[in-house]
Amino acid sequence: MKAETQLQNPYEPEPMRLIRRYPLNEDVHFFQVRAVDMEKALSLNYLPGQFMMISINGIGEAPFSISSTPSRPGLLEFGIRKVGNMTNRIFQLKENGIFGVRGPYGNGFPIEKIKGNDLVIIMGGLGAVPLRSLLLYALDNRDQFGKIYLLHGARTPDEMLFRNEFFNMMKRDDLFCHLTVDQDDTGQWPFETGVVTRLFGKLAHIDPKNTYFAVCGPPVMYKFVVAEILKLNVPKHQILMTLERRMKCGVGKCGHCIIGGYIYTCLEGPVFSYWDVLHMKGLI
């Protein structure tokens, strides 16, 4: 929302109801929520790649990537890893519990630029959460995109987020879906093994000038993945990544998410192109 049209206090969260939750793996749970006010639930608009501030009175607030797609309005979905005070409390929430959410914030993926091009989505670990939003959006608006590839890497089969959802996507004929795990102790894993860059053989025939890449994963993944993408001669501004920072406000005031001295991740990010990122200091 732009400053000129802003009427409400942007720091006051909207009450939301937890509709359902279930584990995606041992530490990460899926949370589906809806604004208590049905009108607000249906009018909430956002872009894939944007985030929201989840608020628990008495604990505080933290930013979380939206995992659902605006092409399916009404419900918001998050994939949350239990990692600290805030997420511990979120994990105590039960179905029908009420808590606060405000947003959406951040720039989101440049959907309008991506439209008409091929799209390669590369996700590792928790990076599946924000990129699922982009993937579902593209699949829901299939005619507006060229070829769509999904390369998804997890450490083990048990750790792979949205496993069943992606297994089902393997059957689609409008998506090239490739899943890999670093290590499979079960011996039951039916797909690839090895790190996600092993899947780059599947991209041999892409047209680099007309392809956008969206990457999200653990810090170590970026280096190797970006090197592989560059080998394909993809322009740097067509390689998109989404970053994580500490945030206390989400609206460009508290200062915690600043990168390189003056880039507010919550305003200018969290989605940046590799070209933007190249000139940022203190990135990782």
Partner: peptide, 11 residues
Amino acid sequence: NFHSLHYVDPY
């Protein structure tokens, strides 16, 4: 300027 840029800080 800072407090009205992008979002107005109501406080």
